[in-house]
């Protein structure tokens, strides 16, 4: 790679870093110190302006979360929610606790498998689509509009549409696969326990790839044009350009998109609930929680499962943030 391209990639990386590690991490306080009384008044006003939003968010976010964690330490039930006793960690480690429940571990396994499969497929396909979208072409506007269609369709609706297309007797997918001779007998896409989770992954990939592609496209468009020009002047082969220039430069953006999708996939509910209801073979952690909480009325036990999911996602976000900061620092160096 030429020196020009190298220097250029360094500049782009530091620009990306500047955008990502924004100034909230290191607030600039010197201005405030200069202005004294006027600044203090401004800060007071700022708190008043932020207060309504903060109060609402505390009431609908923080408070219910704390209550859920508290409920997980009790034997509360839905039929009589006011009448409960503190039972410590019984819901987690007791004889009939979460950690001893095969159904819970099945739900954890389903969720992890779903997340792993769908996020990796979505990343690969999303990268491909983003590269297509990054080319100037007459098709581009049409492609972008078409891509937004799956994204805009409500999850419930896409689950129903695909359930219909994957219907074992009358579905168009089985019809064409049979006509082409790919399968000998109709497949029960959503009922067969061997297949149903993969059908769900398929629908999720269809629905979420556009989102992934748009986030990756945003990263692609921050790659400065001079990088490509420098590479072209030096006659660098196309694949090398992608591997040595494009990929390293979009890596931070790609990682952010993957983390977003992973956190989203871990809490999947709508798709699985609509396509396969509470079926044990495909139940995700969120579906498990709702079944315990609402269908079985076990508020304490269900809250324990919800708390586990919450801490899993919280832990993962903290690890991901640390990892991303490292990547950005390396990209900037």
């Amino acid at each position: 790679m030429s020196r020009g391209a190298l220097r250029c990639s360094g500049a782009a990386a530091s620009r990306a870093e500047e955008v990502m590690a924004n100034d909230i991490l290191r607030p600039r306080l010197q201005n405030a110190a200069l202005r004294g009384g006027l600044a203090a008044q401004r800060v007071r006003r700022a708190w008043w302006m932020a207060a309504p939003m903060l109060l609402v968010l505390a009431a609908v976010g923080a408070w219910p979360l704390l209550r859920t964690i508290w409920f997980s330490l009790t034997d509360s039930e839905l039929s009589n929610p006011g009448d409960y006793a503190f039972i410590g960690l019984e819901n987690y480690v007791g004889e009939y606790g979460l950690l001893a429940s095969a159904d819970w571990w099945q739900a954890v396994g389903n969720t992890l498998l779903f997340t792993g499969l769908s996020v990796s497929l979505e990343t690969l396909l999303g990268l491909g689509v983003a590269l297509l979208l990054n080319q100037a072409s007459r098709l581009r506007t049409l492609l972008r509009a078409a891509l937004l269609v799956p994204w805009a369709i409500p999850t419930v609706v896409s689950a129903k549409m695909w359930s219909w297309m994957l219907h074992d007797q009358f579905g168009i997918v089985n019809h064409h696969l049979l006509a082409l001779g790919v399968i000998a007998a109709p497949l029960a896409w959503t009922a067969d326990p061997q297949l149903s989770l993969f059908s769900i992954v398929l629908v999720d990939v269809w629905k979420a790839t556009p989102y992934m592609a748009l986030l990756i496209l945003a990263a692609l468009q921050m790659v400065p044009v001079d990088c490509y020009e420098a590479a072209r002047v030096d006659g660098v082969p196309r694949w090398q350009v992608f591997r040595r220039i494009t990929l390293p430069l979009i890596l931070p953006g790609l990682l952010v998109a993957m983390v977003f999708r992973t956190l989203d996939a871990l809490r999947v509910f709508d798709l699985i609930y609509v396509m396969t209801s509470n079926s044990r073979d495909t139940q995700s952690m969120s579906v498990f929680v709702r079944q315990q909480l609402i269908d079985f009325g076990l508020v304490g036990y269900g809250s324990a499962a919800a708390t586990c999911l919450f801490f899993m996602i919280a832990l993962l976000s903290i690890v991901a943030m640390g990892l991303m900061r490292r990547t950005f620092e390396r990209a900037a160096a």
Partner: peptide, 13 residues
């Protein structure tokens, strides 16, 4: 925040 993590607290609310 996963939606189910606020579900029982929100139900109470």
């Amino acid at each position: 925040l996963p939606q189910v993590a606020v579900l029982s607290g929100m139900f109470e609310l």
